[in-house]
Nucleic acid binder design. Structure first.
Lengths: 266, 266
DNA sequence: CAGTCATGTTTAGCCATGGTGAACAAGACT
DNA sequence: AGTCTTGTTCACCATGGCTAAACATGACTG
């Protein structure tokens, strides 16, 4: 969370280059040199290095990131204890409710989606380039709040100190004390609500997934338009389905842990 | 393909570190320092740098790669013209045949899978950690040979010069001239066969996907056990289904290109 | 409960090396 | 042919990456 004391500059340059390649959807040496404010020579040497190790692909004069990122990423996800034991249940949840179902975990103080399944009636165009979008702040999503509620207080404070409580809609919780109250409520009832706090006209219900030591590993949620997520649907039906799913996942994980020999990934 | 003239050493160290983290499924500073043959200080600085940029996660004293790799990877795949236009068709192919269906493209002279769908009767345990495994050599897979057949001769030679023709089974083509003959046959009939050349008792049929300029973008294939992929199944039925799928995908891509404004990714 | 031995982290300093700028090569388009 | 581009390479120099050692922290042990 705190900045590196002796960061490796050349690595930071390469990282900037990778992120430029991502946001530009591929680029030429000159474009990248301009974007990073380095000479063409430098950009070229970094690209050649990355290419040699298969992180970057060159076709003609344009460089793009290679699918090696996907191979590594898929490997990590499939190694995840949480994902392995939650996948089927999340899919079930989407089928059951007809809405979007999500599985998220915390990384770097942000909410990182591990799985996202579209239910039959789910709103929104599926044609989005990203699929698993960039991590979100924890305080304005249902999974995020469910996770925050069971993270150690010190960690919660560290995260808020670092990221603050940026506002996404008028409903977003932007006050520390209000957030702490909400988290206490979540602990009482066992699930979290998101009432148009991230996107207007969208609500969500999320439940934490904890191991037998009580540590949160992540959370599941269901999200949908206010028009369907209202009244007892929002206050009873969905919370029950989501917490049930979370309970099943927890049992799966506990049984897997009992069998032992799990990889070191959350 | 040729080594970088002025590689950036610090970047190479970070890359080694990333790959060590992958193969060790997470590790501590000391483990990594030993694995790379650098001091703990160096390992630490690299890890701290990567962590600050969210490429690495630290929990307790063990570092693991972060899901950022997955986010980038999914973005790249979903930006791929080939994947977008082939996805549904490959899934259809798996449903139709009941076997595994694959979509691959060439990267760095290797065959990189973009999609892998398990049909109803497909053999083999699905519980593999990787899902999209590491790239394979082109000369011993059906998709690979289909791709090689339509790559410029100079590129084919460059690839073979670099990787050679390593043997996977007794059936693997390990002779250059024999390979060139096979590629000529593939061009004649329009599809490629893999007759236990990668894995014993497994056969596959692959067809190239080309754009309107005739350049190969990738290939689709169906693979299954010899017991089902035999006689007219192997010589007629599967080739027809696979080439039909490839044709549909090519049409999809051509229409998408006509609409224009495609990302720069294959 | 002290003592030991791991670990991760930080520091100081030297020499390698990453970066610069300019020269070079290779095409594309007048 | 000539003039733009572009990517690539070279030689030099100061930055900063690496090492080694010291420091801090905590876990295990006798």
């Amino acid at each position: 969370m705190k900045p590196a004391k002796n960061p490796v500059g050349a690595v930071e340059t390469t990282i900037e280059l990778i992120e430029a390649l991502e946001s530009l959807d591929g680029a030429t040496v000159t474009e990248l040199a301009d974007a990073l404010g380095v000479t063409k020579g430098t950009a070229h040497n970094h690209l050649a290095t990355l290419q040699q190790h298969h992180y970057v692909v060159k076709q003609g004069n344009t460089y793009t990131l290679s699918l090696k990122f996907l191979v590594i990423g898929e490997y990590l996800r499939n190694s995840s204890v949480l994902y392995e034991n939650a996948k089927a249940e999340v899919e079930q949840l989407a089928a059951d409710t007809g809405e979007y179902a999500h599985l998220s975990t915390e990384q770097h103080g942000l909410s990182q989606k591990l799985h996202k399944v579209r239910g039959e009636y789910a709103v929104g165009t599926e044609y989005q380039r990203a699929k698993l979008q960039k991590p979100d702040c924890l305080h304005y999503t249902a999974t995020g709040k469910a996770i925050l509620a069971y993270l150690p207080r010190s960690r919660v404070e560290e995260i808020i100190d670092y990221y603050g409580l940026p506002e996404r809609t008028k409903q977003t919780i932007t006050d520390r004390d209000e957030l702490y109250e909400t988290l206490a409520e979540i602990r009482e009832r066992g699930y979290a609500l998101n009432d148009e706090e991230e996107v207007e006209r969208m609500r969500a219900v999320g439940a934490p997934i904890r191991n037998k030591d009580g540590a949160v590993l992540g959370a599941v949620s269901v999200s949908g338009p206010v028009s369907r997520m209202k009244d007892e649907q929002f206050t009873d039906v969905m919370p029950e389905k989501v917490t049930d799913a979370a309970t099943v996942i927890e049992m799966n994980i506990n049984m897997a842990e009992r069998r032992g020999n799990l990889p070191r990934y959350v």
